[in-house]
Every structure is written in C-alpha cells, then in structure tokens.
C-alpha cells in the first residue's frame, strides 16, 4: 500500500507547474488523456512483468521517466531565482544531478512496485495551455489514490511537467525545499547535497 502511495508520488511527482515555465501553445485535453493512458499502461505492463530482474526493471522505468518528463524544465523551475544567478558550470552540475536525483529516486521506488490499476478520472485545462489529467489508482485495501499529471504538448511530443497528489504540487514542494537548502548552504551546498543523495550505495550482492 505504501508502495502504491510512492507510485502515485513518483509517477506524479511533478505536476502543478507554474506559470513561469509556460510557453505559448495549447495542449488538447483529449491528446493529453491519451498520452497519460498510454504511458500508464506501458508503465504498469512493465512493473507487473514477472521474471525481469529488478535492475532491468529499474533501468526501463528510468528510460520511461526520462523520455516522458521534461526534467530540464522542471529542474530549472525548481531551482527558483537562483537559476538566473548561477554560473554555467553550476547550472550544468545542478541539472545533471537533479535529473539523476529524480530518475534514481523514482526508478527505485517504482521498480519494486508490482502493480494495481490506473483509471483516468478526468482532465482539466490549466494556465499556460497545459492540461491536468487526473488518474485514480485503485488498490486492494484503502481508498484509491488520486493523482494529477500536468501535461504539455510540444514538437517533441507530450511531456509531464508536474505531479499533483492531494492538491499538492510536487514541483512546488521541491522548490521550497531547495530554497531552504540554498538559503542555508548556498547553491554549491545544494549541489553537494544533491550529489550526496544520488551517490548512496544500494544493496550489494556480496
């Protein structure tokens, strides 16, 4: 059940994305729904597949996340005003660590998930022409989890920009956490702390 909650979080980690990220263009709600349905279908097939070693599952989840979330845009937004004052080197380091942080965290959380069902609950227009697709994940015990995905269409296909769980935008939450770290330790401190988070060893075979 807890894992399910993580699934919600994870698949959804990024939805309530803010105006500053917006560009021109309008995303069709129908297309956005199709995109989320297809993606969640693929994700569940993968997560439920038996006999695939964990490492391989995690690798595939990772590719799926990398392909369908606009991590560069999310990363820039999450850094807040510090993005503008950061040097090229800092931006480079931060972005690659942030992406690694997201991919690692969620591919691990999702890789071990064995799957319930997704159901599309609805879609609504957001500011900046984005669409929030709401999904419901049912589980054997406890009420279903609702999660919203902020989707934006573009030349490179649809991308997820945020995940909203119980009305809380994961991107906004992350942004305020990072702001607190930057205030305390500076941007270089945030970069090293991110490095700390992505460099932990996982379980070992021997």
């Amino acid at each position: 059940m807890r894992r399910l909650a993580w699934l919600a979080l994870a698949l959804f980690v990024f939805a309530g994305t803010p105006p500053a990220m917006a560009e021109e263009g309008r995303t069709s709600p129908d297309e956005a729904v199709k995109f989320v349905a297809k993606l969640s279908g693929e994700a569940l097939d993968l997560l439920r597949s038996k006999g695939l070693p964990l490492a391989e599952k995690e690798k595939r989840v990772r590719t799926m996340l990398a392909d369908n979330f606009d991590l560069a845009l999310i990363g820039r937004y999450v850094l807040g005003p510090s993005w503008r004052t950061a040097s090229d080197e800092q931006r480079d380091q931060y972005l690659s660590l942030f992406q690694e942080f997201v991919l690692r965290t969620y591919s691990r959380r999702l890789g071990g998930y064995t799957g319930q069902t997704f159901e599309i609950a609805g879609a609504s227009a957001l500011s900046e022409g984005d669409v929030l697709v709401t999904t419901r994940i049912s589980r054997p015990s406890g009420p279903p989890i609702e999660a919203g995905w902020r989707v934006r269409g573009g030349p490179g296909g649809h991308k997820i920009l945020d995940v909203v769980v119980s009305g809380v935008s994961m991107v906004v939450t992350q942004r305020s956490e990072f702001r607190a770290v930057i205030r305390r330790e500076g941007l270089d401190g945030l970069i090293e702390i991110l490095r700390a988070q992505v460099s932990k060893f996982s379980a070992k075979a021997t």
Partner: peptide, 19 residues
C-alpha cells in the same frame, strides 16, 4: 556487515518495510 548495509538500504528506500 553486508546484511547490515542491505537492511539499511531497505529502510532508506522503503522496500519491504516502511521507509
């Protein structure tokens, strides 16, 4: 120590147990 490392990972990542 190997089992201790791995147990720590399970707790840290919330695998098979509450995070």
């Amino acid at each position: 120590a190997r089992a201790q490392l791995n147990l720590g990972v399970l707790y840290d990542e919330g695998r098979g147990v509450a995070q």
